[in-house]
Nucleic acid binder design. Structure first.
Length: 921
RNA sequence: GCCUGGGUGGUGGAACUGGUAGACACGCAGGACUUAAAAUCCUGUGACCCUUAUCGGUCGUGCGGGUUCGAUUCCCGCCCCAGGUACCA
């Protein structure tokens, strides 16, 4: 029979499903191994060719580990809450649960066609109430906990309450919001509401004011993703920054542990580095500057307290809480105007734009704590409210941003660390001798930092402080399609619903839009009240809530009593190998580590790092196309003419575009809001712009794997995706070269067949060459899999098959092992040949991986490249038995080499055995 | 802007620890088989120069420097691209 991949693949996929071949047991004599993929968000566009890249790699690894004798847990599920489904619901009125189910079914079909060895009995969906009741349960634990900085862990809020009852909060060391001090008797005399308000300052899940992208026209908060250049992507309305009370999680309490934990996990350095930088630990001092004419002072955080005598002005974030109260009469209007201009900028814009320097004097002054000089207070949008204290002491001589600000506004620059030339630029290095600095003069930077902190602490106006860039995580979203937060309000105080009332199901609503007064969609739910009388919280959890602990649920996914049974948690323990995109480096991976540490603190887990080893697959990038909307209109201008207008670039679906030319009727049909679009064409055509960026539904550049499977089969797709290049490298999708991989599988098939495609295998002993070829491959494939270099394995398979073909080898002893070697990569063809070879169906998955025998590879000669001055000239085959001097003598006396020597005597001869000989003239 | 990664033939990539740059494929060109096509197989294929051809030479891993007998690999300074930048997932 010819290689009929579609028959073979369907047959074995059905076999695996029917026989539960890959079902993992929660106990076994074999050692355990947990291989996890980052589960997908089931988008409406279906699985795209980028998703399987990591899944194929992890599947190869999982299958390899089974062959190596492990009990492998390899599950899959869906991260099924999220914005796209909600946006689709807003556009069509279709309930997101319906579209999500459709999408999941489609994903499942697509995944099944690729032949993964998932244990589907453990499948989870984060939007399933049976799953999210436990996400809600975890939220309740967060609400019921506080972070004790003495014990460095989360503890029950009941412990805190009893401390308050007995001692007040004087001795409590906690990661908490600001709280006034109170005694035990005061606490006991507080009414319920006061007590609850105080506790909210300590809870790990707490309410706080946070800045959000507010779009007045849409009456809703927008994701950064939905804001383009200060306008909403939907509709093009202006967006501003607004404070809003929202649920937050005190992840910052874990900053130090999240940092330290990185030393204990086997992740790549770049990912660890990104997390370290994200957490951003910095040591310095908090310094209070007394406001002149006010009772308050302004606290700044500085990593360079040594430069305090160079502080010539303070800069506050425009939204700093003191700005309005300290601004003097003359400056009120200017400050207001500046605040408004800052409010329309996103934080990212403010950070990236270093060229435009802007700011405004407030009219207020503070007193320098040591020199007593009058220092002006400015506001400037390069200072962010969310970092440190939202205020900096500006030391223009030794900080480049302060320097630029001072130059621009003509503020004094005082050099306090010798070593630079401040007439040209600031001198930011932490090296040099202090000058112009009173009691710090003559000290070096390090000594000065120590000394100034000592003085500040003695004077009670400052203290040494460790600051983290990591901020608490906002946990509320003004959205419908997310986990309801299991909280109700009584007298405006939040309370948890009883845990026996979980799950708190998402209520039905008439529309998936905010209410007319800008309340989140859940506020539309009719008669939705706890115990029939209390209002529920109407925000929902963010997309990352469910994904922060899903790896635990797989261990015991059907459990209705607990999020997972303790024995299962103990047995499967950490994820041994986690594969996913590096775009999750600081989001998902940090949140999941946070949840893990929290559950560990509460005693539910006996490990506090979720993912032992992490491999980041690169992205299969998409090639996106763009249309250019003229701002404030529904008109779109061709790429080549866009400079003549003020435009916003919007993604056009690549399925509406061919050769970068827009198919206008397809485009109009792609979205209701494009139905009446008008176009400014160039020579009758609409040219789209393009960019290589990640493949995602939101970028409308998705390519599906289905047609590739129909044409070439899943085994070809699997091998081709691996063949594309190193797993961790990003690359744009293209199908050049898929033919070669497919041809390889056909050749592989032919090794087991005669010219007429009859299965034909030879029982005789193989040749030495055939053994050599096989064992070269065994060594290579094993090494490659262990270091996740799957692309090089594919090449090695090709080389081996080419060699065996040349040798006309069809010996069972070789070909049996070859099937096993290939099976993790191309499991369907391998199963079929395994069956043809006469072995029992399904046993391939758990047979033993071939053992490498080095004796087949021993060489007695090596063809040495001979270099003259580092440039390779010729090759000489020389016995590997010979030692350095004998080889050199042989080489120098060789006629071919003599030609290059031109009678000269070499200055030096470099000899590296088995590698190279270099003659230096 | 900041953090992280990447840049090698026409294309995807290989070179694992500083040791023959371009393995393995795709594409292209030529050939075999075929009435023809598909499929399959064979040969060639980094650029430039010399040569009738061989033989041979020079250059070449984003750009500019450096270390080294030897650099795609290490160091310094740039350029470009991608991911993240706290409400996309």
């Amino acid at each position: 029979m010819d290689y009929k991949f579609s028959e073979i693949e369907g047959k074995w996929q059905a076999f695996w499903a029917k026989n539960g071949t890959f079902k993992a047991e929660n106990s076994s004599n074999k050692p355990k191994y947990y291989v996890l993929d980052m589960f997908p968000y089931p988008s409406g566009a279906g699985l795209h060719v980028g998703h399987p890249l990591g899944y194929i790699a992890s599947d190869i690894f999982a299958r390899y580990k089974r062959l190596k004798g492990f009990n492998v847990l390899h599950p899959m599920g869906y991260d099924s809450f999220g914005l796209p489904a909600e946006q689709y619901a807003i556009q069509t009125g279709q309930h997101p649960a319906i579209t999500t189910t459709q999408n999941i079914n489609r994903y499942r079909e697509q995944l099944d066609r690729i032949g993964f060895s998932f244990d589907w009995s453990r499948e989870i969906k984060t939007s399933d109430p049976n799953y999210y009741r436990w996400t809600q349960w975890i939220f309740q634990q967060l609400f019921n906990s506080w972070y004790n900085t003495n014990s460095q862990k989360a503890e029950s809020i009941d412990i805190l309450i009893s401390i308050f009852q007995n001692e007040g909060n004087h001795g409590v060391k906690a990661c908490a919001s600001e709280s006034d001090e109170f005694t035990a008797s005061q606490w006991n005399s507080f009414d319920e509401a006061t007590q609850q308000k105080i506790l909210l300052n300590y809870r790990i899940a707490y309410l706080a004011d946070s800045w959000v992208n507010w779009c007045p026209a849409l009456g809703t908060v927008l994701a950064n993703d939905e804001v383009k250049d200060g306008y909403s992507e939907r509709g093009g309305h202006p967006v501003e920054q607004k404070l809003m009370k929202q649920w937050s999680l005190r992840i910052a309490a874990y900053a130090d542990r999240l940092l330290q934990g990185l030393d204990l996990v086997d992740w790549t350095d770049p990912i660890k580095e990104m997390q370290r930088n994200w957490i951003g630990k910095s040591e310095g001092a908090a310094i209070a500057f007394q406001l002149l004419g006010h009772s308050e002072n302004i606290t700044v955080f500085s990593t360079r307290p040594d430069t305090i005598f160079g502080a010539t002005f303070l800069v506050l974030a425009p939204e700093h809480e003191l700005v309005n109260s300290i601004t003097t009469q003359n400056y009120i209007e200017a400050v207001k105007a500046y605040q408004q201009s800052a409010a329309v900028k996103s934080e990212r814009d403010r950070m990236s734009d270093v060229k435009t320097i802007s700011g405004q004097f407030t009219g207020a002054y503070v007193q320098h704590p040591f020199s007593n000089e009058k220092i002006p207070v400015w506001i400037g949008d390069y200072v962010l409210a969310s970092y440190g204290t939202g205020a900096v002491m500006a030391v223009p001589a030794h900080d480049s941003r302060d320097y630029a600000f001072a130059k621009h506004f003509n503020l004094p620059i005082v050099e306090v660390v010798a070593g630079g030339d401040i007439s040209i630029a600031s001198y930011d290095a932490k090296e040099g001798t202090m000058i112009n600095s009173d009691f710090l003069n003559g000290l070096n930077v390090k000594e000065a930092i120590r000394k100034v902190i000592e003085k500040l602490e003695a004077a009670g106006i400052g203290k040494g402080k460790v600051n983290f860039r990591l901020r608490d995580a906002i946990f509320g979203r003004q959205r419908y399609w997310g986990e309801p937060i299991p909280v109700y309000y009584k007298n405006e105080i939040p309370y948890l619903i009883a845990s026996e009332d979980l799950p708190l199901n998402l209520p039905e609503v008439d529309k998936f839009l905010p209410t007319e007064d800008g309340e989140p969609p859940l506020a539309r739910a009719k008669d939705w009240k706890y115990k029939g009388q209390y209002n529920y919280e109407t925000t929902t959890m963010p997309g990352w809530a469910g994904s922060s602990w899903y790896y635990l649920r797989y261990m015991d996914s059907q459990n209705e009593q607990e999020f997972a049974n303790a024995d299962s948690l103990k047995y499967w323990n950490q994820v041994d190998l986690y594969i996913g995109g590096s775009e999750h480096a600081t989001g998902h991976l940090l949140y999941a580590r946070f949840f893990c540490k929290f559950l560990f603190d509460l005693g539910y887990l006996n490990f506090d790092e979720p993912f032992k080893k992490l491999i980041n697959q690169g992205m299969i990038q998409g090639r996106s196309n763009f249309v250019y909307r003229i701002n404030g209109t529904n008109q779109y201008v061709s790429y080549d003419l866009k400079e003549q207008y003020q435009t916003t670039a919007l993604h056009a679906d690549v399925n509406c575009v061919e050769n970068d030319q827009l198919n206008i009727s397809k485009f109009k049909a792609s979205f209701p809001e494009y139905a009446n679009a008008e176009f400014v064409l160039s020579a009758g055509k609409y040219h789209c712009g393009f960019e290589v960026e990640k493949m995602s539904k939101s970028k409308y550049n998705v390519v599906n794997p289905d047609d590739i499977i129909s044409r070439y089969g899943a085994d070809t797709l699997r091998m081709y995706e691996m063949f594309l290049g190193p797993l961790e490298q990003s690359k744009p999708w293209n199908t050049n070269g898929i033919e070669g991989v497919h041809k390889f599988l056909r050749k592989f098939w032919k090794l087991y067949h005669d010219e007429q495609f009859n299965f034909s295998i030879n029982e005789a002993a193989p040749s030495k060459e055939a053994y050599k070829s096989l064992h070269k491959l065994i060594k290579k494939v094993q090494e490659d899999i262990e270091r996740f270099s799957f692309n090089t394995s594919v090449s090695s398979f090709m080389i081996c098959v080419n060699e065996l073909q040349d040798l006309k080898c069809n010996n069972r002893a070789i070909l049996k092992e070859l099937v096993v070697l290939l099976s993790p990569y191309a499991p369907h063809i391998a199963e079929e040949l395994w069956a043809l070879l006469g072995y029992e169906n399904g046993t391939l998955s758990t047979t033993a991986f071939p053992t490498f025998d080095p004796s087949y590879l021993v060489e007695d000669e090596f063809s040495y490249p001979i270099s003259i001055n580092g440039k390779t000239k010729i090759n000489l085959a020389i016995s590997l038995q010979l030692e350095q001097q004998a080889v050199i003598d042989l080489v120098l006396s060789s006629e071919d080499v003599q030609k290059y020597l031109e009678g000269k005597t070499p200055k030096k001869v470099i000899f590296v055995k088995g590698k190279i000989i270099n003659i230096v003239l």
